[in-house]
């Protein structure tokens, strides 16, 4: 009887890396569409309140946005290199790249924290009297700004946690040069977070 359970359990966890990757991509599409809904809202309001959006976007610091863009792009690089490293059987290097990725993610969050606190201390946050006295277009711009970058930051946080777990998996050889699909999938997630930011950056910081 135990043999039956064993064989069945084994059957259930049979490995299908391609299947796992399909699942991950499908999940990424839901994330994409989730943000897509907000991009849609952004597009509609930008169409309606274009001038106010231009006005409001001047209140954001392009420097913060630019730095964060570069940080995320670099983290994507180290993420991708971490996968190449483990596949080339250099575990140490892979761990180093992954640690760098996590470090960049942290840097992104620190930067975000300073950016948001600057906004908060100048009285701009959802529901603040300062903001409510502004024209409607500006209220909506900042509404979208906080919600979209906020949700993105939440994804960065989740990504950090996932990458941390991957780091320990790497360390304990759960992930190795033969079985690296988990790392690859985490990487896919991380790159998607990057792609979202690639669009958020010009939409909020650059377009005047």
């Amino acid at each position: 009887m135990n043999q039956l359970v064993e064989s069945v359990v084994h059957e259930h966890v049979h490995r299908d890396d391609v299947g796992a990757k399909i699942g991950m991509w499908l999940f990424l599409f839901t994330e994409l569409i989730l943000f897509g809904g907000m991009f849609l809202a952004y597009a509609v309001y930008r169409y309606q309140y274009g001038d106010f959006f231009a006005l409001a976007s001047k209140k954001l610091d392009v420097f913060f946005g630019l730095i964060n863009t570069l940080i995320l792009l670099t983290s994507s690089l180290t993420m991708a290199m971490s996968i190449t490293a483990i596949r080339r059987e250099s575990k140490k290097l892979s761990m180093l790249f992954l640690a760098l990725t996590i470090f960049f993610a942290l840097l992104f969050m620190v930067n975000k924290y300073f950016e948001w606190s600057a906004k908060f201390s100048s009285g701009i946050f959802p529901g603040s009297t300062e903001l409510l006295n502004q024209p409607k277009g500006i209220i909506i711009y900042f509404g979208l700004y906080f919600v979209m970058t906020g949700l993105h930051a939440l994804h960065v946080l989740i990504g950090m946690v996932i990458l941390l777990v991957m780091f320990f998996y790497l360390k304990s050889d759960v992930i190795n040069s033969d079985y690296y699909i988990m790392l690859e999938n985490s990487g896919l997630y991380w790159h998607l977070v990057d792609i979202i930011w690639i669009f958020l950056f010009p939409l909020f910081y650059l377009i005047h």
Binding site: S76, L77, M79, A80, G187, L188, H191, L192, D194, I195, I198, F199, F201, P202, L203, L206, I207
Partner: peptide
């Protein structure tokens, strides 16, 4: 707007094709 979105799309495409 078009240029900014165009460049962003190009960047996204690169990430998708190579990094991903």
């Amino acid at each position: 707007v078009l240029v900014a979105l165009g460049i962003a799309s190009l960047k996204a495409l690169l990430v998708l094709l190579v990094f991903m």
